[in-house]
């Protein structure tokens, strides 16, 4: 029953309801507030820096960064070669770097190879290109099953692969961070880089989805 508990908690109970139906902060929210007050009182953190960091990951660093990397690789063969040879430097060319993206490796999907990324031991994830991970990536279900039953997980998520396509699952056990370079969808020859980036979803760069078709929209 761990999953139902996890699911419940992962959605975060910021507020509980008291008998009058008023919102009251949850025990966890109060505990966080107490720790924050103490850290600020002691001069261990700058409260404005906390807010600035939260804003950075809520509004500046997200999967749009990775989508631009993928779109550049699709549009520019020389960039793609640099990306596959030294991903950290090639990604930094576009201005993306930072914590949890210091040692990037980009793995390329082909008609015969499909790549999938997981972290079975914790929830390692390439923050500078994808932002912070979604709850399902951190879930016990994904962490436990991606390595033993990748095809089952992918099928559940709506991606059924042919038996003769090799699935390569990358378990991020070190500080190396993996990003999937999806196959460029057909009928996209006339699209500019920005339009290509619109097709590249977060999930396609983790390897649990394919990029959108040109007339579609990236989920």
């Amino acid at each position: 029953m761990g999953d139902s508990h996890e699911h419940e908690h992962d959605h975060g109970h910021d507020h509980a309801h008291d008998h009058e139906g008023q919102d009251v902060p949850s025990a966890t929210a109060l505990r966080v507030k107490a720790l924050e007050s103490l850290l600020v009182e002691k001069g261990l953190v700058d409260p404005a820096a906390l807010d600035a960091l939260i804003d950075t990951y809520e509004s500046k660093i997200g999967p749009r960064n990775g989508a631009r990397v993928v779109a550049r690789a699709w549009a520019d063969p020389a960039y793609k070669q640099r990306l596959l040879k030294d991903a950290s430097s090639a990604i930094a060319e576009l201005g993306y770097s930072g914590a949890q993206g210091e040692h990037m490796v980009v793995v390329e999907n082909t008609p015969s190879v499909h790549n999938l990324v997981v972290c079975t031991l914790c929830s390692c994830y390439p923050w500078p290109v994808l932002g912070l991970p979604p709850v399902w990536y951190k879930s016990y279900a994904y962490r436990s099953r991606a390595v033993i039953d990748p095809r089952g997980v992918l099928a559940e998520l709506g991606l059924s692969l042919a038996e003769d396509v090799s699935v390569r699952v990358w378990d991020s056990t070190s500080e190396i961070r993996y990003l999937v370079l999806p196959l460029r969808p057909p009928n996209t020859d006339n699209l500019e880089e920005e339009a290509l980036a619109d097709l590249v979803s977060r999930d396609s760069m983790i390897g649990v989805a394919l990029p959108a078709a040109p007339e579609g929209r990236a989920p």
Binding site: G12, D14, S26, L39, A49, L53, I54, Y57, E58, L132
Partner: peptide, 11 residues
């Protein structure tokens, strides 16, 4: 999913 999650991350 809640403001406290962001605070924990940043702290």
């Amino acid at each position: 999913h809640a403001p406290w999650e962001g605070k924990v991350y940043a702290m």
